[in-house]
Amino acid sequence: MHNLWIPVVAIFAVAGLVFGSQAYSEAKRDAHIAAIISESLDSQAPAEISHLQRVNKGYGVCGDYKLSGAESGHFYYNSATKRLALGTDAPLYHDNCEGVAN
């Protein structure tokens, strides 16, 4: 019976590491996107991002941003090319986020 617990514990440990690192990676990506939006808009305050939707097999993110002022809008970020598009008029946003349900 002792020999059965070792593989079970090992499986749970590996699963915890995989899912934990994925959650950490997504949080880090979200913070990076918020910082890039703030920098692009010359804002000292960090942007708040919401309604995130993964697109392009996980390489792109569509969502909404809001600054501490009244400014808000939509964005698209491509994690492979590190390109950011702000606003629904931007060609990258139009090509990747139109028709994506938020």
Rank of each mutant, 00 (worst) to 15 (best):
40 S>M: 03
39 E>G: 07
80 A>M: 10
28 K>H: 12
36 I>E: 13
67 L>K: 06
78 N>L: 04
66 K>V: 06
78 N>D: 15
31 A>H: 10
35 A>E: 15
94 H>I: 07
55 V>M: 05
15 A>R: 01
6 I>V: 13
44 Q>S: 15
95 D>I: 04
98 E>A: 12
81 T>D: 10
3 N>F: 15
99 G>L: 07
60 G>W: 00
57 K>P: 00
71 E>G: 02
14 V>I: 12
29 R>Q: 14
56 N>F: 06
73 G>F: 00
79 S>H: 09
42 D>Q: 07
93 Y>H: 15
44 Q>K: 12
93 Y>E: 01
27 A>H: 09
77 Y>S: 01
27 A>Q: 13
28 K>R: 10
49 I>S: 02
23 A>P: 04
98 E>H: 12
33 I>P: 00
59 Y>R: 10
76 Y>Q: 03
44 Q>C: 05
38 S>P: 04
14 V>D: 10
26 E>I: 12
4 L>G: 02
87 G>M: 01
61 V>S: 12
3 N>A: 05
99 G>A: 10
29 R>K: 15
91 P>M: 04
72 S>I: 06
6 I>Q: 05
92 L>Y: 00
34 A>M: 07
52 L>R: 10
64 D>W: 02
7 P>A: 00
41 L>R: 05
28 K>L: 11
84 L>N: 03
91 P>H: 01
62 C>L: 08
58 G>H: 09
55 V>C: 07
6 I>S: 02
65 Y>P: 09
47 A>S: 15
55 V>H: 05
13 A>G: 15
92 L>F: 00
31 A>L: 11
81 T>N: 12
2 H>N: 15
54 R>C: 01
32 H>F: 14
74 H>E: 08
32 H>I: 08
20 G>L: 04
72 S>M: 08
91 P>T: 14
96 N>Y: 01
52 L>V: 08
55 V>R: 13
84 L>E: 01
37 I>Y: 08
60 G>M: 02
18 V>D: 08
51 H>V: 07
98 E>K: 11
22 Q>H: 11
5 W>Q: 06
21 S>M: 09
2 H>V: 11
94 H>S: 09
2 H>P: 08
63 G>E: 10
20 G>D: 12
95 D>P: 00
71 E>H: 05
50 S>L: 06
24 Y>W: 11
45 A>R: 04
59 Y>D: 09
84 L>Y: 06
22 Q>V: 15
81 T>Q: 04
84 L>Q: 03
15 A>Q: 14
72 S>F: 11
53 Q>N: 09
8 V>N: 03
89 D>F: 03
87 G>W: 05
10 A>V: 11
57 K>V: 11
43 S>M: 05
21 S>G: 04
32 H>S: 12
20 G>K: 02
